[in-house]
Amino acid sequence: MTFSIIWIPFFLMAAFTIGGGLGVVISRNLIHAALFLALSLFGMAGLFVLLEATFIAGAQVLVYLGAIAVLITITIMVTRRLMGITETVNRQWPIAALISLLVFITLTVVNVNAFGAVLEPVAPVPADDITLLGLLLADAEGYFVPFEVASVLLLAALIGSIVVAREARE
């Protein structure tokens, strides 16, 4: 493997993703954990760009950084009790570490078995891939059902969360 200029952004983004992920689990301060999560998600968006999945990258930043990271942060902020916690209250970390390691090994083995250790270059992405995506989303033989189910699912999620939040308020 010879050095290529693309390695620099790749390793930078990989470092953001992994470092952010590590920060989430080891930081004592919950807000710091949320900010590390945002960093990790940003790194993911960068990796999507490197894979030329630009729409997914945009959606990643918009939904995960712009909405979910913010939601997590303010959830920590509105629940005052969580703010003061700086000690990890959990003594199960050896078991958790073991399980994470096992999951990691399983995923690596499955991925290497499925795609092979040497990666083949994929077919070039069509130039107008977003139009294609849009056409397929609204096509009866394409992804019409997932498209509509997604909207119904989101409606259900909204109703559910409002009901739960209302019970908490009363």
């Binding site: 729409f55 939904v63 909405a67 977003i130 139009t131 995506l133 056409l135 997604a150 989101l154």
Partner: peptide, 13 residues
Amino acid sequence: DVEVVFLFPWAVA
């Protein structure tokens, strides 16, 4: 937000 992300490719097409 999530719904709009789905709608954007649809709007492009």
